[in-house]
Amino acid sequence: MHELSIAMRVVDLAAARCRDAGGDIVTAVTVRVGRLAAVHGGALAAAFEMAREGTPLAEATLRVVDVPVRVWCPQCRAEADLTDVVPLACPACGRPTGDLRAGHELEVESIEVVGPRGDTVGAGA
């Protein structure tokens, strides 16, 4: 259950960003999780509920964006998203390819912040 370690970092990152932007609380967090990142969406949501307690994210919603595996096919000279995670092969021509362009993501994409100075700070920070 490494989802708790991950959820705690999500909360830390979001809280720090909110503080830097002069916000009071975070109402939503959007994270991008690649299909190869070995993180379970449901487990992450459950862990997030624990991790957010007593923080500026106490009321925050977690949105998980599922990022498909994207490969580069040297034969077709094109990138393509895979419907399944495996096999890692070009969906157009079938050539196996380990050249990944996406799929290992584990990142906080954005947060939604409410706060007194929310209207004037943040955008360029």
Partner: peptide, 13 residues
């Protein structure tokens, strides 16, 4: 309270 606003983070967890 002001409107919620969206802040980009784009940081690896």
């Amino acid at each position: 309270m002001s409107e919620p606003r969206i802040l980009e983070v784009r940081t690896s967890i």
